[in-house]
């Protein structure tokens, strides 16, 4: 009996060892494939498309989603009194600042780290959970930073361009960044993963409600701009792509300085 127990433990130990090795191998392979794919695609120019036809189909779906849901909601939201809209916008921006804090740290941008942290503390306390924005009056101007931008600062290229369902334009780098955001964003830890942080807790509904409000707020701010773009574009898909890539590039550089690519066009 004792021998059987010993053998059983040995066999169990071996099975666990093999399983562990296999899982580790799988994780290693997965990480290797991810890193390899990422590095390969990050060498592409951002203008390069990985699956243009698929992206265009998703883009059409997103535009239909916008026509049926986002635009009517944004128009309704625009009818709300200004103090409510400003309060909602301040509240979501304040929560978004939480993601900027670890990213500023990862980027080694300590000035912005100070702005983000101080802005979040001041607006959450004095600004009553971020509904008001006294930090701005104090001269605190935090930039919104995410993992995609951090990877950009580390030197990773954007990789190929793609369109995500509902979420819209992206690149290989920014899509990986988007996933990574949920791991380093303190708000995602408290809500999606339901961890308690400094006594605060929440659930996934809180997370998606804040993200949804933020998207509606953005859409309502840009009702005229997007309508004008749609009205005047020959290829709306390409216009969105160009605007997205220019905007991401500006955010990585933390500058809106125009890049002079007029070259020798001096007629």
């Amino acid at each position: 009996m004792a021998i059987f127990k010993l053998n059983f433990n040995r066999i169990l130990g071996k099975i666990i060892y093999i399983a562990r090795t296999m899982i580790l191998k799988k994780i290693k392979s997965f990480v290797f494939i991810m890193v390899f794919t990422f590095l390969t695609v990050s060498n592409l120019k951002a203008a390069d498309e990985c699956f243009e036809n698929f992206s265009r189909a998703i883009f059409n779906f997103n535009m239909a989603f916008d026509d049926v849901i986002m635009e009517p909601v944004a128009k309704g939201y625009n009818k709300l009194p200004n103090p409510i809209k400003t309060g909602a916008s301040n509240f979501t921006s304040n929560i978004a600042t939480l993601l900027s804090i670890p990213n500023n740290l990862l980027q080694g941008n300590f000035k912005q780290l100070g702005h983000s942290t101080a802005s979040f503390v001041v607006n959450t306390s004095v600004g009553i959970l971020g509904i008001f924005n006294p930090a701005e009056k104090m001269g605190l101007k935090p930039h919104q930073e995410d993992v995609g931008q951090t990877l950009g600062i580390y030197g990773f290229g954007p990789g190929c361009y793609l369109v995500l369902p509902i979420l819209g334009p992206s690149t290989a780098r920014d899509t990986i960044g988007l996933l990574a955001d949920t791991f380093i964003d303190p708000f995602a830890h408290v809500t999606i993963r339901e961890n308690e942080l400094f006594g605060a807790s929440g659930n996934a509904i809180d997370y998606y409600s804040v993200k949804g409000t933020s998207a509606v707020n953005f859409r309502s701010d840009n009702l005229i701009n997007l309508e004008s773009l749609e009205k005047n574009s020959l290829d709306l898909y390409s216009s969105y792509k160009s605007i997205y890539l220019q905007d991401r590039n500006n955010k990585i550089k933390n500058s809106t300085e125009d890049q002079d690519d007029w070259g020798n066009l001096d007629n």
Binding site: A47, S233, L234, D235, Y237, S238, S239, K241, S242, I243, Q246, D247, N250, S255, T256, E257, D258, D261, W262, D266
Partner: peptide, 30 residues
């Protein structure tokens, strides 16, 4: 401003987004 007597607008950059470049990339795609 090549001709200082007659400045001409070549591009509008709205919040860092160049309208000329957007147009160029749209045409390039077509």
């Amino acid at each position: 401003t090549k001709n200082p007597d007659k400045p001409l607008i070549r591009d509008l950059i709205v919040e860092g987004l160049s309208l000329a470049r957007t147009q160029k990339e749209e045409f390039a795609s077509i």
